[in-house]
Amino acid sequence: MRKYIINSLSLLSILAIVISCQNQETIDLQNYMSNGKDIYIARCQNCHGKNGEGLGELAPPLTDSIFLKTNKSRLACMIRNGANESLLISGKTYKEKMPAFPELADIDVAQVMVFITNSFGNNQGFVPYKEVSVQLQSCR
């Protein structure tokens, strides 16, 4: 009987350790999400809104997951350099210019991009800073 209790207790504690030990990517994701949120509030929210709802036809919403997914490799460049072309988002065409944010470092761009693509109903997972850095080097 005693043996059983000791065994199950030790098993439980091992299980607890495994569960509490998150992998590095989850921790990174949480970091990016929290820093990305601060950047979003400071730079993006005035046009795109608290819940990514956009503003009339002046600023598109950030809730179109399909757009975000198909343009995934361009998002970083759009955040850094703005956009000056018409974009079809949520079935509507947006023609207003998006300003550039050249002051954002690669890591900032990565964090705010991860925040946007994992908020407002989007759930596209983690993109590491290194990958974003490569994308930013080949912006058109």
Partner: peptide, 13 residues
């Protein structure tokens, strides 16, 4: 204006 105006007019809307 890309700074405070969008927020102002979002709220004024």
């Amino acid at each position: 204006c890309t700074t405070i105006c969008p927020t102002m007019h979002r709220n004024l809307m």
